[in-house]
Design a protein around this nucleic acid. Sequence first.
RNA 1: GCGAGGGUGGCGGAAUCGGCAGACGCGCUGGACUUAGGAUCCAGUGGGGCAACCCAUGGGGGUUCAACUCCCCCCCUUCGCACCA
Length: 815
Amino acid sequence: MEKYQFSGIEKKWQKQWEESGIYRASFLPDKKKFYVLEMFPYTSAQMHMGHVRNYTIGDVIARFFVMNGFNILHPIGYDAFGMPAENAAIKQKTHPKDWTYKNIETIREQLKTLGISYCWEREVITCDPEYYRWNQYFFLQFYKNGLVYKKLSPANWCPACKTVLANEQVIDGGCWRCNSEVEQKELSQWFIKITDYAEKLLDFSGIKDWPERVITMQKNWIGKSYGTEVCFAIPDLDKELIVFTTRPDTLFGATYVVLSPRHPLVQGILEKSRLKAEVERFLLKVKNQALTAEDTANMEKEGIYTGINAINPVNGEPIPIWIGNYVLMEYGTGAIMAVPAHDQRDFEFAQKYKLPVKVVIKNPDWSITPEQIESAYEGEGVMVNSGEYNGIPNTEFMEIITEALTKKNLGKKTICYSLRDWCISRQRYWGTPIPIIYCNKCGIVPVPEKDLPITLPYNVRLTGHGTSPLKSVPEFLRCICPECGGEAERETDTMDTFMDSSWYFLRYATADTQDKPFDKKEVNYWMPVNQYIGGIEHAILHLLYSRFFVKVLNDLEYLDFKEPFENLLCQGMVIKDGTKMSKSKGNVVDPKDIINSYGVDTLRLFILFAAPPEIDLEWSEKGIEGAWRFINRVWALNDSVLSYKETKTHTGDVDAEKNINKTIKAVTDDITKAFHFNTAIARMMEFTNHLSRVIERKECSKKTLEGVWLKFTRVMAPFAPHICEEMWRLAGKTNSVFSEKWPEPDTQYLVDKNSVIAIQINGKVRGRITAPVNSTEKEVIKLAEEEPSISRWLQDKTIIKHIYVQDKVLNLIIK
RNA sequence: GCGAGGGUGGCGGAAUCGGCAGACGCGCUGGACUUAGGAUCCAGUGGGGCAACCCAUGGGGGUUCAACUCCCCCCCUUCGCACCA
């Protein structure tokens, strides 16, 4: 027999599907919908097996739900803005726009060869002004509602290139291009107040099924902690210092306080300090210590005494004020009280700088003399050295002291989040221009909505030097103030690309809407996304920003729902050479070669069969042959079914029916319970193995065989759509297999007459018997005793106990 | 360091609730067909043993008639967070 000629067949159906528009989504308010979405591709990326995996998973789900009668939305688009386009442009002397659109062409072609069931009419391209104008629109809505503000914030700055660097462009503290030492420069940047939504974002009750670890990561990222703000007086300055602590019970043990180098009181302290020169030297030294996570991790804790003291509000004792490079201005109040006896970090710092240690919670195993302490005691105990409060358990004391401070107006209960506001300013060209105008007379003026979109000028010189490239484009920069009509300048920063991806799933719902970002009615119908599929690497930022966006738009009454993604499937990465497959790692495997030699259906089966979706997959082409053989076996079987000549014995009919119905049930369960496509495919393989034998032995009636095969064709269709469509038509059908209903298992074939029961002797399997289903314990024991492999064990022994699990196992305990 | 996941044949991976460990596939071995086989089909395939059997789910202990599955200790590994006061 000829091999399966995939190439012509796959192309034929791709063309036919596209022409007949079977994937076009339409708004049908009375029909139950299902929105399947895979995270859209970044246009700088090169298609690789990671993408193939992602989109294939989505496609199986979409096709499965179509066949289950849902109105499907399964869109695709491109995450098209961002730094790589700009870097490529500088390097290759092209324009980011040309480069991006060229890439989109390529990706689109590649996606089409994969035969995914996308509704292409809804394609979204984020660098299209028709898309990003709504970024600007939302920015203005957020602005109007007090959710946008501007503040000074440090950025990585290369003094040689005179440009801002992203964290990944800082290598060992140096600029990636010229290697100069990177500085921290304070820039005025735009922020969105995501912190206002910290509480709402901690509420996951609107989410149905997300991986637990993603929720945990988001919770940790938001980082809610309960604590107390305590007020320390600074008599020399006649000012007060507020510190945040989660351990107010240790307040009597505070032996110094530490300020962040960027704390607002530092300036005032310097002026009064007799150690001014030294402190200034220290500040200069720590100023450029990088802010990247990597560097902070390895950073040595350092500090300096300012020469000024603060007063501990509980006992009036003066304690020294220090400045430390490890105290973050962004968290709490930017100042801490240090309790070396009960905080390991403080303990180490105190040891280093010979600062006093004072024990205030009794460790039952230790003496309370500080000299004998080798590490901080962070556990529970009763208060000591705490004046009138001695003897109280510290857990109770937390409340007591906080109340006492509150009464004296020296402190209060408070909640801190580690979540920071979202900085959306990027000193880059290839992004959405921020719709703000600076007027000498009127100050900061938001662009009126009617003037949107503010489009990116095409003519720009990208050098990689200097600040925002848009500053050097006069026709963009110069504008008229919408308030006073005078000359003004535009904001030249562009938006973070997370802005683009925070709402693209809403745009898909009504992609052709002209006068507004989306149609409320249609968005409310399609949303939320029923099944979102993407990599775990977006567990925090993208998913959190999207949730935030939807919550704000819900508050502003644009939407009637509160969560964007009902169910989330985080598929594992495709690994090669020990690292995630990506263009930047240079380890991508282009699906093209495999498609050319084996076809798309084989590739799909192969990648789905290799592992369950959530597991990381080490790339290996071993096994592709297995998928290819399976496709060919199916093709050969189809031929055998069509040319089958019936004989008079139909003894295999029931068996064939049982097999297909059990397969239907198993595959349905595998898909709906956990998207375990690997086991679903294994079931289908078992089915074909069985059916080959049936056909070979001619045990089946033609009618049964054909019926069984048609059911199988439908079950396999979501996994291998092209070959199944072909087989469906070869069977004489005129409609698409995807307009057919997913088969339901016929329950009469799911139950067996007999079951095989394992017989254990003292817990070890010694034999098996076949007994009618639902046999009684007695009957099973009798059969077991008659079974030679079992009776051998029973000679000269007594059964002292037996355990019978219906239709599964009988355990005989003998002596 | 903290938090979460994972460790099963030569390999990828199966195993609803504690109930027959290794489904399915790759690879390998043998055979058939063939001028040929890197195609296809059939059989075998966790390790040891001629066999009866014994040993096996990272290691050690425990609970149980019964443990990959539950409990305790340890080792390894992946991911996330990392001075969050």
